[in-house]
Simulated assay, not measured.
Amino acid sequence: MKTDELVALLAARAEPVQRHAAARRLALALAVGLPLSVATMVFEYGVRRDLVQTLFWPMFWVKLLFPACVAVAGFVLVQRLARPGVRVRAAWLGVAVPVLLVWALGLAAWLMAPVDERAAMVWGQTWRTCVFNIAFIALPVFVASLVALKSLAPTRPALAGAAAGAMSAGAGAAVYALHCPELAAPFLAIWYVMGMALPVAAGALIGHRMLRW
């Protein structure tokens, strides 16, 4: 078969891709993975008993909303990176800005605190487990998003995997916030960010191999 005939045959079978296909598949991945993350938190760790009371504390909302913003920004990023030729532009700022803000808040709180209270604000009670708990709770969303990406067409696999990691990390940290007893800004700035960085790094490494055409 000649090259021109092969091209014509392939073109004849070409079908238009549905609009918003990437966003729909990734939204489906979230719809599958997020309830599993919530179930993991509930059955493995448990919702904190004073949750209703903490709803009136501003730092609880910081702890909840900062990773939730990262998750939303990660979704925007990954659905763009899942399509060839789509520019990311300034979408990375959606991931970076919440982290920078919580770092600034953590540093300010640490500097203003009495010297004898600073160590407790950094280490808290759960620093040994926080990082891995966040990564573990993020795992269902992480796996589902990579499966969805595999069925799409990312041309920058490492970046797409990192974006999927950011989305899952933000979701996992937001879910974990419903259990976590820590509220100090320095703790969040260090250990929450480290916990969220693990899926991002894993996504970049796995995506480089798994998502290559």
Rank of each mutant, 00 (worst) to 15 (best):
A120P: 11
V72P: 05
G94Y: 00
P35Q: 10
W57A: 14
V32L: 03
A23G: 01
A73I: 05
Y45D: 04
W103V: 15
L107F: 04
C69I: 11
L30P: 02
G46S: 09
R87T: 11
F66N: 06
L28E: 02
V47N: 13
A96K: 09
Q79P: 13
F75D: 00
G46Y: 05
A82V: 02
M121K: 10
P16M: 13
L100C: 13
L77F: 06
L93E: 02
Q18Y: 10
W92F: 09
Q18M: 10
G124K: 03
L64R: 06
H20S: 10
L26N: 00
W92C: 10
C69V: 07
L101D: 07
F66K: 01
L28K: 03
A135Y: 03
V97R: 07
W92K: 06
L30A: 03
A21N: 12
R83A: 01
C69H: 10
V131F: 04
A68V: 04
F75T: 01
R25D: 01
V7S: 14
V62L: 06
D50A: 14
A11I: 05
Q79I: 03
A68I: 11
A68S: 01
G85V: 14
P67S: 05
E117P: 09
A27V: 00
A23D: 00
A31R: 00
R118A: 13
R24T: 02
K63C: 12
A11M: 13
L81S: 07
M41T: 01
G85Q: 07
T126K: 08
G94F: 00
V99Y: 02
C130P: 14
A104Q: 04
F60W: 14
P84K: 11
A96F: 03
